[in-house]
Design a protein around this nucleic acid. Structure first.
Lengths: 349, 349
DNA sequence: CTGAAAGCGCTTACAG
DNA sequence: CTGAAAGCGCTTACAG
């Protein structure tokens, strides 16, 4: 025995039922299957329930119905515009559909995220949004055997363990480099983020290397890796200017790096795009207001959030399989890239 | 009768208990009060439970223990760096403490947010983070009578219905305007956001007006209101330049506006800060990399998220009252403001 | 259209 | 240190 059986007053269904003069069943039905309850009775129940501020106990409801209406999102961080935007859209879409969003941040390395993801499930998540390829063996195992819908975003791994609502990182970057090659650039550098447990970075670097190689161009070995910080964009760009002044095209795997690179060029009196071309990735809001306006690969963050929410919800409610979506990307063409200069200007130090 | 009583196999405590050869009680105790279970038995339970991939059912656990370990955050949007950063820190802190974060976005108008906030509670939130003053009468009523801990952030209303972990918006902006006044500026404009249901905006505008008035300065009627978009910063700055070319100081209630204002000045050949001073608010990451580096009021987003999480958690677990915190702000001094020019330059159109 | 009863899967006070 | 039993607050199949 634990508490006394609350068979009388209180504030649960029982109390409402008593106040109205019907059974608990009828009160519950009025909320969950209103069409089964006589109009007149239903009205009275709603009225009195509202008066009493009655709300069904979430845990009791979830236990009995085996539905929590909670969906989990495990993302690297919220402190990065593009992820925040995706979750924002994910949450809004889900909210419209009648579900809530529980969030956990895991960092950018996917190799050991199982405990974080499990926390979401332990709180009742009925479905899961992930970012990038599933690399944690324990998580791989979990999604294989677990019965809940899972979708991953940002990536489009062909051999993925789970359906993906993402874009082709390789192709997007291959096109960007291709574009620069056609503009006549001969010497390149890439500012990337860490590749450990991050398939997007690996795909982008591979695209950069492969494309340069195919064109017999210099630079494929010049890949700088940093965590996402604007200062890193500044310092890396300075380093490039110092060590490889022949560089005319810099591919940044994040607008965070690009804005830093732009700043470094300004500091050094290097003109963009006359002397050097810089391309970013993400299409942050401020990209077009930079000086010069930043050409950048537009990542469809909001769209991914929306589609992920929709397919997950359909999977939960209609038991449909989770549907992957390959989203096309485009380069937001602005003025930070241009034809390769015939000669490098002098770099002032 | 609903389902058959799962008294035998399955995958719950019962199954684990049977596999180990103890009672459900002992299995449950091994997880919840390990010190009450004999070392040897405990080990065996952990081992077998892990093998069977056993996880206590969240809803059952929550129903019985009346604890969900879920905390709710109702914020205007995640698609704005400063809110995303606050929630990011909130989540991380809570995660460390053993709780999860459920999020809902409500927009910037606080007058009708009760249904959103209630959704959080209906999903099991044990405590609530809010943003700004509580203005929705229904919400006010709810927090007054509800027994769950609530904290609001960003504001510091003295007569608040709920404790606040925030900063003094009025004072922060009064200081900023005061600073500009001391620099000799005579003619001002403010680019603000919408004031409906937004006490932070109202406080900032009041601070601006009061301070100007106290100094007998021009501009207190020149407050432009827009939703947070960089283009609005551009167009409003252009308007200011056109209609009030005598303006030498522009206070932006968001760095989003400030970056737009900076851009507009650049477009028009107006030099910052030689011709006009611009100050932002938020201290976005990119503020110091702008050209010129942006002077801006630093909003302590991460700190608010952390403190809110800590006080809410203490309130839940130790039944301590929720503790408010008034956080000091400072102006991140950079180069976008300077002494008032003696004469206005010509504005090219 | 409605009510009585079972049971969702745990945890915990009680008794030993 | 352990087990049997009660009960958390709902929802729903069953019977009427």
């Amino acid at each position: 025995m634990t508490r006394k059986k609350s068979d009388s007053a209180g504030s649960g269904v029982r109390a409402v039922a008593q106040a109205v003069g019907v059974s608990k069943s009828t009160v519950s039905r009025a909320f969950n299957s209103p069409e089964l309850v006589k109009e007149e009775v239903r009205q009275k129940i709603f009225e009195i329930a509202a008066e009493m501020n009655y709300r069904p106990h979430p845990a009791a409801r979830a236990l009995r119905s085996q539905r929590t209406h909670i969906v989990g999102a495990a993302i690297p961080t919220l402190d990065y515009a593009i992820f925040a935007r995706m979750v924002n859209e994910f949450e809004k879409t889900l909210s419209t559909l009648g579900a809530s969003t529980i969030v956990i941040t895991t960092g950018f390395d996917n190799r050991d995220v199982f405990d974080d993801v499990r926390q979401l499930v332990d709180r009742g998540a009925e479905a899961l949004l992930l970012v990038g390829e599933v690399e944690d063996p324990k998580l791989k195992d979990f999604v294989r055997h677990a019965s809940l819908p899972v979708v991953t975003t940002y990536s489009a791994p062909p051999d993925s363990t789970v359906p993906a609502v993402g874009f082709d990182n390789y192709r997007a970057f291959a096109e960007a480099v291709e574009h620069l090659a056609k503009l006549g650039h001969k010497s390149y550098a890439m500012i990337a983020s860490m590749t450990d447990g991050n398939d997007r970075q690996r795909a982008r670097i591979a695209a950069y290397r492969d494309t340069l190689e195919r064109h017999g161009l210099i630079g494929s070995d010049r890949v700088y890796k940093h965590t996402y910080e604007m200062r890193s964009g500044v310092s890396t760009m300075e380093q490039i200017l110092d060590e490889y002044p022949e560089t005319t095209a810099v591919i940044c795997n994040s607008d965070v790096f690009a804005i830093g690179a732009l700043k470094a060029c300004r500091n050094r009196g290097v003109r963009v795009p006359e002397d050097i071309s810089i391309i970013g990735c993400d299409d942050f809001d401020f990209a077009e207001l930079l000086d010069p306006p930043l050409t950048t690969i537009a990542v469809p963050a909001a769209r991914m959030g929306q589609l992920a929410a929709e397919t997950l919800w359909a999977a939960i409610t209609q038991k449909k399989p989770v549907e992957g979506h390959l989203i096309e990307t485009r380069i937001a063409m602005r003025n930070s890239i241009g034809p390769a200069p015939n000669a490098r200007i002098q770099v002032s130090t």
